[in-house]
Structure formats: C-alpha cells, structure tokens
C-alpha cells in the first residue's frame, strides 16, 4: 500500500469542498437540479478527478484515458464542477448549468467535454461501462473504467443484468461505486425497496466488495487502490454517505434530492456552512 500523503488528503478535501460550493451555486443559479446526491458524491468525485483518473483535459477523447460514467446522472452539478475544476472547460460555464445557451445539459451529455457517456435515465451506466471495459481488453489498453451508481438507482433491473455480465466476463478493469446515501427522490430507500444486505447481494453476483465511509478521503483512495488487485473480478465499492452532505438542512432528507435552496437565506446559509468547513480543513 502506497503511503497517502497528508498534504494530498488536505488538497482533496479542499477540492471536495469546492465541488460542494459549486453544486450550491449551480443549482441556485439554475433554480433547478439535484443537490442532495451531488453533495453526497463530492468526495468520491474529488478523489477520482484529482487523484485516480488518468485523463487529459486538453485531449478529452484520448484513447488510453480512464473512463468514468456517472450512472446516477442527476449528480451532474458535482460532475460538471469536477470537470471544470480539472480543466475540461472554463469554470464560468458552470453558472449556465441547465440554461438553453449552455452545453451543460441537466443530465450528462456528450456535448460536455470530458463526459464519456450520456446518462440520466437510471440503471444504464454500468452496461456502458462494461462495453468500455470489454473494448479495453480487446484493444489491449490498460485503462480502467469507473461507474458511479446511486443506491436508489440500483433498484433498476438493468443494473443487475450488468452486474451478472461483468462478473461473467471477469472484468477486473471495471470498478462500480455505489453512493449509498440511503435516500431516493420520494423517501428513504429502505422504505421503498429493501436493498440490504447490499454487500452480500453484490458478492453473490460475483463481485469483490469493499465497504467504506464515502466521505473519508483516505478510505476512498485505499479502496480504489485495492480495486486494482482483484484478479479476474470486478470490484464494487459501497460508499456509505450522507445525502446532502455539508449543508445542514439538506442532510439526511429526501426534500433536497431535486430542488435548489428555496430562498436567498437558505442559499447564503449553505455557502456559509461550506466556507466554515473549508476553514477547518
């Protein structure tokens, strides 16, 4: 296990904090969008885009790049923020999110530099990831494929078709990450569909399973390192997270799954809390 440098961890925490601020600014400017599941995924995206992924912002279609599919496409604010911060397009564009003059579509689209797959209709991204992983093996390219799923999303049957096939095809170049924030649009996931025991489900489907705290930068890095050593099996990282993480009134409630801060006061409060968090990093 490579040593994880404290300075690197601090840098990634700051990136995650910056992603969260952008999420709030973007959905407030758009008066539309999904903050809850964007905030829960911010740490994972920060580690992916500022530590894990081999990508080249100047050459977004570089054939050897690692692939990333945001299967939970509604977390587009956090995704676009990470892409802009990584240099795929100017950060100014972020405040045009969901507006007709912008390429920043409500859900990820190939119009956006750095996006590898259109998503938004839930349950399909893992299949696309399998196709990318198969292509990598066919072409003897050693890139890796990462797919971020929502926990509500995995209620879709297509996910489990893909889970079976990824294991059958021994896709050890494929990593799924489940953002286990325990809340979907209408309610808490366990009141909608019983997803637990989630780890055992994936294990039963032939995957290697790693459970982590999805807000702990060190745990995220370690899990992604560990995923490189599976030897013939795909890895799923179950990232236990808090929906709305970082904004007190958005945490652990379905209310802010798909709506922006409801007033100037709410908006300022969210940014203030995130700024306080930044000072503590």
């Amino acid at each position: 296990m490579e040593a994880i440098n404290d300075e690197k961890v601090r840098e990634l925490k700051l990136k995650a904090n910056e992603i969260r601020k952008w999420v709030i600014k973007m959905v407030y400017a758009a008066q539309s969008g999904h903050p809850g599941g964007s905030l829960s995924a911010a740490d994972i995206l920060a580690v992916l885009y500022f530590h894990e992924l081999h990508v080249d912002p100047k050459n977004p279609d570089w054939p050897q790049r690692d692939r990333f599919v945001l299967s939970k496409g509604h977390a587009s604010p956090a995704y676009y923020a990470a892409l802009a911060m990584r240099g795929f397009f100017p950060e100014e564009e972020l405040l045009k999110f969901r507006k007709v003059e912008s390429f920043l579509q409500g859900h990820p689209s190939l119009m956006v530099p750095g996006v590898d797959m259109c998503t938004g209709s839930l349950g399909q991204g893992l299949s696309a990831g399998i196709g990318m992983a198969l292509a990598g093996k066919m072409d003897s390219l050693d890139y890796r494929v990462y797919v971020l799923l929502g926990d509500g999303e995995i209620e879709e049957g297509n996910v489990w078709e893909a889970a079976m096939t990824a294991a059958t095809r021994k896709l050890d170049n494929l990593v799924a990450i489940v953002d286990r924030n325990k809340i979907q649009l209408d309610d808490f996931t366990d009141r909608m569909v019983e997803l637990d025991p989630l780890e055992e489900k994936w294990r039963g489907f032939g995957w290697r399973v790693i459970s982590i705290n999805g807000h702990d930068i060190v745990q995220i890095i370690r899990a992604l390192n560990e995923a490189r050593k599976t030897g013939g099996r795909p890895t799923v990282i179950i990232a236990h997270t808090v929906k709305g993480k970082g904004v007190s009134y958005m945490e652990n409630t379905p209310v802010y799954h798909g709506k922006p801060p409801q007033s100037e006061e709410e908006y300022e409060k969210a940014l203030k809390e995130l700024e306080e968090e930044r000072r503590g990093i």
Binding site: V69, M117, G123, Q124, G125, L126, S127, A128, G129, I130, G131, M132, A133, L134, A135, G157, N158, E161, A162, T165
Partner: peptide, 10 residues
C-alpha cells in the same frame, strides 16, 4: 437492455 448499453459503451 444490458446488451444495448454494452453496445453503446463499445
């Protein structure tokens, strides 16, 4: 369904 998604990825 999975086939069409994989086809897209390929």
């Amino acid at each position: 369904q999975n086939m069409m998604g994989i086809a897209a990825g390929l």
